Amino acid sequence: MKPVSLWDDAWKRLRKNKMAIIGLWIVIIYFAIALFAPIIPIHPYEQQVLDHIYLPPSFKPAGEVMLKQWENHTKKIMKKEGRTEYTEAEQAKYDDMLEDIATNPIHQRHYILGTDSLGRDILSRTIYGGRISMSIGLVGTITALLIGIIFGALAGYMGGWVDSIIMRIVDIMYGLPYMLIVIIMMAILGRNIFILFVAIALVSWLTIARVVRGQIISLKNSEFVEAARSSGASSGRIIFRHLLPNTISIIIVYATLSLPSFIMSESFLSFLGLGVSAPLASWGSLVSDGVNGMGLYPWLLLVPAITMTIFLFAMNFLGDGLRDAFDPESKNQA
């Protein structure tokens, strides 16, 4: 009978989880769009076209939508004033708009998801906002993994006073008001994307450090570790070549489940006005901008909010699927 590796077995069970596979494909599509955003034929995310402010989502040319919007607004004024024809000023403006639409190629643009208060394309801003949000999530996750794995592995393998010191530091940092510290850092050091990376990753490594420590403690007295010690392997080699590879499944699951939490943290900071600075945008800052005008211009809120929600759900479905796939208990039950 051909032996089945942990990875083959996990992949086999992951494929049976339809929601996890759907989540995986959604995540791949999101990252592909974010990665290739510069070559996708969309309008520049920072370009302002003041003639196109607050255009609703439409597949029609911007000039046509703009003219229709002006006509509807003018008709409301005419109805309120009890007249049926344009004034001279309104007729002159209407003629000027027709001429401008016919001669200016910028009015041939299509805004399928609408525009914002400065005439910027919501589609391109949502895509580039996703690049920022996902980058912060990735950097936060990678930083948490690097710091947490190193400190957790050292604490679990070395034990004694090393373990006590590291775990007391973790306990102290757990007791600190994390979000308040992040807000204070952003307020003092300024709205800089690098500061945002550091602030979000500040205490994000604590949980993975505890998880890795527990796994290392349960494995460090195993026979394969004793064999490595007998062959003269150093502590570093034992940790990084023998112990950590046996905890990789838990680390992967933690990474997929923690990335959405980093995006949510960034979104919360951006909603408070402490996120990325203009002209850059993130999903959180776009949602914050959309809240102010959601009554009159609902697409400003709905587009980034729905986009972010779909990604967060996909990541959670994928994380849950990976957890079930790597869980030996579910293997035994099957």
Rank of each mutant, 00 (worst) to 15 (best):
I39P: 01
V27S: 05
H43S: 09
P44G: 01
I33M: 12
V49L: 14
A37P: 06
P61G: 05
G23A: 04
P56W: 03
V65N: 00
V27M: 12
L24E: 06
D51C: 06
I39M: 09
Q48C: 00
S58G: 03
G23W: 06
P56D: 00
E64C: 02
P38Y: 02
F31E: 10
V49S: 13
V65G: 00
I33V: 15
P61W: 11
I40Q: 01
A32F: 15
Q48P: 00
I40E: 05
I29M: 15
A37R: 02
W25N: 11
Y30D: 04
K60M: 10
G23T: 07
P56L: 03
P61F: 03
A34R: 02
F31S: 14
P41L: 02
F36V: 12
P61E: 04
Y54E: 12
L35N: 08
P57L: 12
I53T: 14
L35W: 11
I26G: 04
I26Q: 06
S58V: 00
W25S: 09
D51F: 10
H43P: 00
L50F: 15
H52T: 07
P44W: 01
I26H: 02
F59N: 11
L55T: 03
L55I: 06
I26P: 04
S58M: 05
A34D: 04
Y30N: 10
I39R: 08
I42C: 02
S58E: 03
A34N: 06
W25Q: 03
V49F: 13
I42Q: 01
G23V: 01
Y30S: 04
P41Q: 03
P57Q: 05
Y45A: 11
K60T: 08
P41T: 01
E46G: 00
V49K: 12
A37Y: 02
I29Q: 03
H52M: 14
L67A: 14
I53E: 15
P44S: 09
A34M: 09
I40C: 07
L55G: 14
Y45L: 02
H43C: 01
A37W: 00
P57V: 04
L67C: 05
